[in-house]
Write a protein that binds this DNA or RNA. Structure first.
Lengths: 196, 196
DNA sequence: ACCTGAACACCGTTCAAGT
DNA sequence: ACCTGAACACCGTTCAAGT
């Protein structure tokens, strides 16, 4: 298979996925029809279906490609041995998230969709696994200050990454439903509740 | 208007809503069609539409009626002056939630749906307002140990209630996506992250 | 190989006709 | 007044026919 053609296919899939994301951001998951994506992309129904076998596969591609922000800065900080605390990692992740322009409302809709679409759920777990691995790397130095055993440190980092994810999910769901809120305010409020 | 007839109407709406909830729990929000609810309820299409003007109104009714657990025990503890901390209130709420048999997956789907259905969003905010008021009442004595001014105590209780809600949402979204987790574990993990 | 767009099965909703 | 179920517009998906 010539590489040019593969590149072309991938570029075409990306073009369709970007058109889909624009409609999704505008109308939401439920109210985005294939007809809308056809109109937004300027292609035809059949053209979409010659690049994605169905709507679910397109959704999976969008999630895998655009739904999670990269947290390279955090990761390299951890790699260079800088002490990133879990709280700083959470704060950094939420800030990157906000800067990436990902709408909490759209993310929440995809979570809901994943409850009913196993392939999308799998893709989300895969994408989340990357994020957790990045987080674990970032807080690695912190974990090693808490235990001398390397295996213990790794599992502490992994468990902590799940808690960071849970807090991030809380922030996203809460701002989506109840309106925007500053990350710092949210962290202070949550800390006060848990310390009480 | 005779009262009997009103009661009958309400009972009929409830009967339809309960049938809808059974299908929703089984198939999820996206994959529940009116035809499914017709089959589950044993009524006809027109019968459903003579009690609810559309699918959205039925969803709103289900959410208002079944989506949030009652936390009477917590509320009366607060009313009687017992010192309920925010953390205990959160823990109590999540326990009641789990005992009520409300599937986190279904709740997450409704949150997503609310992002695209303004009437459902409104109903959710209304239901959440009741819950927050109950929480505020429950943690009232705690708030008054923190400040002598009654107005300050009320606003502290209200702000704290939002943070409790955010943490509860995090627990629900996290368990829905990543699988069940003990409430205590979640609370310990989150506290460790925020204290770091 | 990629693309076109008409055709098909199914969805939410309406409405004339029944009790 | 409540209910029936056929009819309608729209959705996701398929497929014969084009380049």
């Amino acid at each position: 298979m010539p590489k040019v053609s593969d590149q072309y296919r991938e570029a075409r899939r990306d073009e369709i996925a970007r058109a889909a994301l624009r409609v999704l951001a505008r109308n939401g998951v439920r109210d985005t029809s294939i007809a809308d994506i056809v109109a937004e992309s300027g292609l035809s129904t059949g053209a979409i279906y010659s690049h994605f076998s169905n709507k679910a596969e397109l959704a999976r591609y969008v999630v895998g490609r655009f739904l999670l922000p990269r947290i390279d800065a955090l990761e390299s900080a951890g790699r260079s041995g800088q002490l990133v605390t879990p709280r700083q990692a959470l704060q950094g992740m939420l800030s990157v998230f906000a800067e990436a322009g990902l709408s909490p409302a759209l993310v929440l809709q995809f979570w809901g969709e994943a409850m009913v679409e196993p392939g999308l759920h799998d893709e989300m777990l895969r994408t989340a696994a990357h994020l957790r691995a990045s987080l674990a790397l970032a807080i690695g130095p912190w974990a090693r200050t808490r235990t001398s055993d390397e295996t213990d440190a790794a599992s502490l980092a992994a468990e902590t990454a799940r808690s960071i994810a849970a807090l991030a999910q809380g922030y996203i769901a809460n701002t989506a439903v109840f309106g925007p809120r500053a990350v710092d305010e949210y962290l202070e409020g949550a800390a006060a509740v848990l310390a009480s």
